[in-house]
């Protein structure tokens, strides 16, 4: 059968070419799940610690943000800080990706943006936005911590 490259390859479910729209679609779910569990738990821990006492807040602060040099666990805390930074960058990227992808979903919900080229461009733009926004966010707060 003659193949027209301008047409999508589906509906043969096992014959398809991986495209940015598929990546963005599954990333929306993956980043949403990461934010819901990781982001939700860290956020609740942060607020609850703040409402309990300065000591409870400092446990959060020293293990996540910045190690306490006077602590017996200072070296372990420094390791935890590095891990927290990696998780933090991952969660901020997830946040910006989920946000951009969510805005794209608002557009798609109106019935617009399904043309092959527009759809592809929109999905690539969400990826470009999330990467740039993550770098900018950490550039702004990097000076503080």
């Amino acid at each position: 059968m003659a193949h027209n490259p301008a047409r999508p390859l589906s509906p043969h479910l096992s014959i398809y070419k991986w495209g940015p729209h598929m990546l963005v679609s599954i990333l929306h779910r993956a980043t949403g799940t990461a934010l819901a569990i990781g982001g939700g738990v860290i956020f609740a821990w942060w607020l609850t610690a703040a409402a309990m006492s300065p000591a409870a807040y400092n446990i959060f602060y020293h293990w996540v943000v910045q190690a306490d040099p006077a602590s017996l666990h200072a070296s372990t805390q420094r390791l935890a800080n590095i891990l927290a930074k990696i998780v933090g960058v991952g969660l901020t990227w997830s946040f910006f990706q989920h946000m951009a992808s969510g805005i794209r979903h608002f557009v798609l919900d109106t019935g617009a943006g399904y043309e092959l080229k527009t759809n592809r461009l929109g999905s690539i733009l969400t990826l470009a936005f999330s990467i740039v926004a993550t770098i900018l966010f950490w550039a702004v707060i990097a000076g503080k911590y």
Binding site: G40, V41, F43, A44, L47, T48, A50, A51, S53
Partner: peptide
Amino acid sequence: GAATLCVFSILKIAFGGV
């Protein structure tokens, strides 16, 4: 559970409980 914990914590701080 987590949302209630957050709401209570915000209110406690906001009303001067901390």
